[in-house]
Nucleic acid binder design. Structure first.
Lengths: 157, 157
DNA sequence: TACTGATGATCAGTATGCTGATCAATATCA
DNA sequence: TGATATTGATCAGCATACTGATCATCAGTA
């Protein structure tokens, strides 16, 4: 069997493992308690007012069943509000609260620091190259996971 | 806020998400039911007979509390055996079973196919480069997660 | 309009992965 | 030796992710 370091799947797992640890450490250091997943959802909701959960899931490539719990916790923390849609009674519209906006602003520097820390072993050029290659591989594999990235209705227009 | 595609943490999550989906699909296609995590543990146990759980965890960078459940499931599937160590009565020694060896051999082609599928968007040179950059970033961040990669006693000698 | 299929949300169940705790056993050092 | 610290394994609790199911609602069509 090959060395683990020759297995892209293993590297993917390790990189993600470190990414989460770094994110949580940086965010906790500025006094907040938000996971990477919760942060991504919160940021997406701010940029897309009244978004429904299914669209949100496609926007950040989450599984639709995972979104339910994530939204639950964001609501519970008072960072977003969930209300029934009038257009479609199946859907729930999500809206960021003032506290959510404040939180987002406050942790943005920590989030950016986390991204730098994650790539601290690479120089500028290497970091740029890694991002490009990851984007390319992810783009080619997008449809292989149950939670592919989807365009918003606005982007399709 | 930056586009998600400019956030290495987001890319890490997506890449890992696709890696797991591809692995499970390829392995299931040849009639087996084994997760990436279970596979890595099983392969490491075969290469390191009588390894204890803590060393195993360090070898493949798993959290020690996660290992307990993974080992449970491998034992339950009959792929490994767990017995008390005589040298250290706290430790459990792990050994692959014949069925475990057979399973490993049988799924190895599928595992290798999964690695290729994961990188199908990249050419040979790009794939090699991505692996190298990931290794470098991971190496620099190794100590930042709770479950860093550790040398085995044999490697330290 | 009635039927059929698709969609939004949720649920139960399972598997990682983590935090922090506990317990037994071992190692270390005053 | 005896006190202390460390280590191996496990546990409870929480948060992602997934599979597959259900339920309500909506959309398209015969």
């Amino acid at each position: 069997m090959k060395d683990n370091n020759e297995m892209p799947g293993h590297l993917a797992r390790r990189f993600q493992q470190i990414a989460v640890a770094v994110f949580l450490a940086e965010v906790e250091a500025v006094g907040f308690d938000l996971t990477p997943v919760q942060y991504a959802a919160l940021a997406a909701i701010e940029l897309n007012p009244a978004i429904d959960q299914a669209t949100l899931a496609g926007l950040i490539a989450y599984d639709r069943t995972t979104i339910t719990g994530v939204v639950d916790r964001l609501v519970q923390k008072g960072l977003i509000a969930r209300r029934a849609s009038k257009r479609d009674r199946r859907a729930r519209e999500l809206e960021i609260t003032n506290q959510g906006k404040t939180t987002l602003q406050a942790i943005t520097p920590a989030v950016e620091a986390a991204q730098r820390t994650l790539l601290r072993g690479l120089n500028e050029k290497e970091a740029e190259q890694l991002m490009r290659l990851l984007q390319k591989a992810i783009s080619a594999g997008n449809e292989l996971s149950r939670a592919p990235l989807r365009e918003t209705a606005a982007e399709r227009a």
